[in-house]
Amino acid sequence: MNAIEVKNLKKSFGDLQAVDSVNFAAAQGEILSLLGPNGAGKSTAISMLAGLLVPDGGSATLMGHSVTADPQAAKASLGVVPQDIALYPDLSARENLVFWGKMYGLRGAALNQRVDKVLEIIGLSERQKDRIGKFSGGMKRRVNIGAALLHKPDVVIMDEPTVGIDPQSRRHILDNVKALNKQGMTVLYTTHYMEEAAELSDHIAIMDQGKVIAFGTHAELIKLVGEQTRIDLTLNTESTVIFDAWRNTQGVSRIDAENGTVTLLVDDSNLVLPRLFEAAAQANVRITSVDIQEPNLESVFLHLTGRALRD
C-alpha cells in the first residue's frame, strides 16, 4: 500500500484549471517532492490531500484512506506544514505546540513528553517560553514544522517550508526532513528550489500549469535530457540575429532567453561553445559571461517546457 496515492486529481477555479488530471504516488517511508514554479498547482494539489479543498474529480488516499470518503481517518494519519506561519504569535512556542498537540488528540503526560521531544527536534527547547511573535523567521518556520510532528503522523506534507528564511535555518529544516524520513515518516515536499528536491527526494514529480509533466527519481529525470549540458550566457546587447544564428548552430537543441540571460541546451559544450562565440562575433555581439552546468532538474524543466524553472 502506498502512503500517498493520487489518481486523475482535478480542481478548477472558474476558468482556471489549477490541477489537471494529476497522478503521483509515494511509498511508505519515501520523500516525494512536487517541483514546479509558482502557480504550477502544487499547493492546490496538497490542499486537496489535506482535506482543505474538495476535488472536482479523481481520487486521493493517505495510508489507504480516501481524503473525500473518509476524511477523518485520512487526516488522523497526516501532519501538514503550511507555507504560511500558521501559529498564534501571542502564545509561546510551548503553548502553541501544546495547543496543536491537543488538536491532534494528545493529552496529559503523553502530550508534554511529545512537546519536549519536538522542541528538542526543532532545536528550540531553550526558547520554548518565548512568544512566537518575538521569533525570527527561521525559528517560526521550525515551530511551524514542529506543530505538524506532534502526533507522529505517518505522512507529513510540507508546503514550501524554506521560503524566505536564512541559510542556517534552511539547512536545519532540510536536515530535520531527512531525520524524520529516517524514522519512517513519508514526506510530501513541495518546492520550487530544484536543489532541495534533488537533495531530499526519492521521487520527484515536476508540475507545470496544473499537470505533472514528469515523474521519477532524480536520475531518471536527468536522463530525460540525455547528456545535454546547460549553458547560460549573458550578452552586452539583445539581438534576434544572434538567437537565430545559435538556434541553427549544430549541437544546440534548445534556446531560451529570459531576464537578460540566454540559456541553451547543447550536446557537447566543448564542441558547441566555440561555434557560439564565432556566431556572436559575426553578429557583432559580445558575450560578457558564460556559465556551464551539468544536466540538472533545471535542465529537465527547460527541456520539457522551454522555460526556466525560475519564479
Binding site: L52, K75, P82, P89, A147
Partner: peptide, 14 residues
C-alpha cells in the same frame, strides 16, 4: 488571516 484556521481544518477536527 494567519492561516491557523486552515491548519485547524487539516486536523481531524470537524
Amino acid at each position: 488571516k494567519n492561516r491557523t484556521l486552515q491548519r485547524l481544518m487539516s486536523t481531524a477536527m470537524r
